[in-house]
Design a protein around this nucleic acid. Sequence first.
RNA 1: CGGGGCGUAGCGCAGUCCGGUAGCGCGUCUGGUUUGGGACCAGAAGGUCCCGGGUUCAAAUCCCGGCGCCCCGACCA
Length: 497
Amino acid sequence: MAQAQKITPRAKDFSEWYNDVVMQAELADHSPVRGCMVIRPHGYRVWELMQRALDDMFKATGHQNAYFPLFIPMSFLAREAEHVEGFAKEVALVTHTRLKATGKSGAQAVTPDPESALEEPLVVRPTSETIIYAMFAKWIQSYRDLPVLLNQWCNIVRWEFRTRLFLRTTEFLWQEGHTAHATEAEAEAEARQMLGVYRTFQEQWMAMPVITGRKTESEKFAGALRTYALEALMQDNKALQAGTSHNLGQNFAKAFNVQYQTAAGGLEYVWNTSWGVSTRMIGGLVMTHSDDNGLVCPPKLAPVQVVVVPIWKSDQEKSQVSGVGGQVKAELERAGIRVEFDTRENLKPGAKYFEWEAKGVPLRLEIGPRDVAAGQVMTARRVGGKAPAKLEGIAKTVTAALEEIQAGMFKTARDRREASSIRGVTKQQFIDFMKGAGGFAYGGFCGSGACEAEIKQQTAATVRVLPDPDFRSPEAPKTCMWCGQPSVAEAVWAQAY
RNA sequence: CGGGGCGUAGCGCAGUCCGGUAGCGCGUCUGGUUUGGGACCAGAAGGUCCCGGGUUCAAAUCCCGGCGCCCCGACCA
């Protein structure tokens, strides 16, 4: 309820709009702890639906779930030089194991008991490579033990300066896959495979178009050999990194001594990968599809796919439409559709419409006396118009409509992204583009970190990915769009979240 | 860590300049009438005015000192 508040229009203030949509769709709320969020039932349901789809895909590609601890010995983080460098600035530490009463009141009533200081502080995991590979070292002896294909669903903590609901919070939920392989080629194939899984999920479930590709040195994961990523373009033309997959090489294997005996009797380090997506995707979902009326959710991830709203005047009409509404609900449920029958009597139908629209329900069925008489319901799409539908075969009609909505959302989002992309940019076009509306800019790149840094400094744009073949321009650029030196790869730039 | 905004009922805000003991809208509760795009009438409940000190006969309001939140930038998934 409480639908009277207005959502700030996107055009007025995109950040405010985003906050309003998240809050009014009841996806999440701010917690008493700065930078942390509470994921509310409606938002958590979206996450559960995401988890289920992804988990099925992980299982189908041979992975098993496991769980590793929240606490990691501080020294573990330090074992891989690049890794510790990457995370040192944002780890939370556990230094004591108990509190002591001070006799004061309020916030000063308790204090860490100095007697209980840990000899070695524990870090709250910002990611689990170190503790997982420490365990892999115990479990892996022979080439017969490989590959190891694990995943865990968990929370992690990164102490961020500035946070935003779902997009960047101090604590967030994610999954992290961790694998060990006998050869570099296998590890590379795994990293690429999982990038493909993410792409399938984001395109087909989230209806969010992504560009896949490789990260440059400056953007890759701390400790990885190579990082691959998926980048989506939000409605404000800023890019969102929606997932990453890393070929870790033997960096962690060497740091944690993960070795195996080969068939020939030699001793080799394993090759690792890690890959993850997080609740950040929910932020991506919001900023890809939603409008000034609230959340727009693709049917496959909508907690409520269909809402049935009865309309009546007299008691007789009420019992009539309620009967039909109940039947429709039951029939849709039998067809596996997530449906809500909104029988609340204290709200007028219009108020219900606004509420369910803010919550992103893709399809609404209105049933009034006139519909009952005509053997039909009125269908109203969250995005798109109203049309009557025969009661007979309603489940089929609705299923088809949901599929059409899902496909339509992907197409709309992809068209929008393409309309905000330019290819083969020159330096001046690039500067103007980034200063103006922004979006994805494709151009030649010399590969130098110096060029990258200068571009970032002058335009706030970074290389999002060196795109995979599916996304490259028909003609490979010959020179770096910035410095004019020979291009080593096409790159996609954007200002990013 | 810089720049901006803000903290008063569950939510959104007015009142602060110019001190006089707190109000509006929405929501909530009760009863009744309503219901094809945000219902109406009547009644009711609900507040340490962010915290601490100071000035004053009197502080939401003035002074000093804290704390917290949001937005923008630097850093980052």
